[in-house]
């Protein structure tokens, strides 16, 4: 049977959105995200909550190989959001990435256009853990000085790809990082460097 969506669609969607908004407004500062969902594996409750809160018929969604391989995931998202699923990263408004290690190169997603940079893809990653105060060093809008955040697992050549993403500003991707119960933001405006202790 299809797993249920939000118990309280109005306020659960609002709470999820506010957590994501605060996360993107304060890059590298994880926010609490209580999804309250039990979606079909390997979709995580946090990925599902963000999909249910932000996607609909207007937003093509791209699923990574691990999610796309399970028909129940597509059925769950289609039923609860009505969002069309796309095979093309460049067409995606949102991309759900369950396995960050096997994420396609960031450059393959929609980067936006100079006149409409808002048409870029928003990537939502499922990680095992997000730890603030250590790891990558972040600067930019929304950050008072420097912020630090450690990602586990951290995708290969992640920092180099994020540097390339930042260098194209105002074009570029916006990343929403989730871990159980938490969400953090890495918008394209954030400059990311390897953290040294």
């Amino acid at each position: 049977m299809l797993a249920p969506g939000f118990a309280d669609p109005v306020h659960d969607a609002q709470g999820t959105f506010r957590a994501v908004m605060d996360a993107l407004a304060r890059p590298g500062l994880p926010q609490r995200l209580e999804a309250g969902l039990n979606p079909p594996a390997p979709l995580t409750p946090e990925l599902a909550a963000i999909a249910l809160a932000l996607t609909d018929a207007d937003t093509p969604v791209w699923l990574d190989a691990g999610l796309a391989a399970v028909p129940e995931v597509a059925a769950y998202l289609r039923f609860h959001t009505g969002a069309p699923l796309t095979d093309s990263p460049a067409q995606a408004a949102f991309a759900l990435i369950r396995d960050p290690a096997r994420c396609p190169p960031l450059a393959r997603f929609a980067q936006g256009t100079p006149a409409y940079p808002d048409t870029a893809t928003t990537l939502v990653f499922a990680l095992d853990a997000l730890t603030s105060g250590e790891g990558l060093r972040l600067t930019g809008p929304g950050i008072d000085g420097t912020a630090r955040i450690a990602l586990a697992p951290q995708p290969d050549s992640f920092v180099a790809q994020l540097a390339a993403n930042r260098s194209g500003f105002p074009l570029g991707l916006d990343l929403i990082l989730t871990a159980p119960g938490r969400v953090a933001g890495l918008p394209r405006s954030t400059a990311v460097t390897e953290g040294r202790a």
């Binding site: 669609p9 969607a13 908004m21 407004a25 809160a53 932000l54 409409y116 940079p117 808002d118 405006s189």
Partner: peptide
Amino acid sequence: EGTKRMIRRAILKAIAVPGYQVP
């Protein structure tokens, strides 16, 4: 709720590109 979702997506992009006017 559909309208709120649309506005919320615009707000997220507006935050990601500070000062840019999102339609």
